[in-house]
Simulated scan of single mutants.
Amino acid sequence: MEIRKASSADVDGVFALVEQLSDTYEVDRASFDAAYADALKDPDHSVLLVAEVDGRVAGYALMIVSRLLYTRVDSAQIQELIVDEALRGQGIGSRLVAAVEDICIQRGLNQLTVASSRTPAFYDRLDYRSTADFLKKVFFSHRD
Rank of each mutant, 00 (worst) to 15 (best):
R129N: 03
P43H: 05
D84M: 06
S117I: 08
R67S: 08
A98Y: 04
R88N: 05
A86I: 11
D127R: 13
I78A: 04
D84S: 14
D74S: 12
V53C: 04
R88L: 02
I78M: 15
T131K: 12
S130C: 12
A99C: 12
A98S: 15
Q77P: 01
G91Y: 12
F122T: 08
D127G: 03
S94Y: 06
R129H: 14
G55K: 09
Y128H: 08
L112T: 05
Y60L: 10
D42F: 04
V50T: 02
A76Q: 03
R107F: 01
V57H: 05
G93N: 13
R125I: 10
T71K: 12
L81A: 06
H45C: 07
L81I: 15
D44T: 04
G93S: 11
R88C: 07
Y60I: 03
D44I: 00
S116H: 02
A58L: 03
C104I: 10
A86C: 04
A86F: 09
M63I: 08
L112G: 02
D124T: 14
S116K: 01
D133Y: 15
I82R: 02
D124P: 00
D42A: 12
S130F: 11
A51C: 03
S130H: 09
S94W: 04
V65K: 05
V53A: 04
R118H: 07
T113D: 09
V57Q: 04
N110G: 09
Y70V: 07
V83G: 01
I64D: 02
L48W: 06
G91D: 14
D124V: 11
V57L: 06
G89L: 04
L49D: 01
L69A: 09
L96C: 08
S116Q: 07
Q90D: 11
T131G: 03
A98Q: 15
A115M: 11
L109N: 06
V97S: 07
D54C: 00
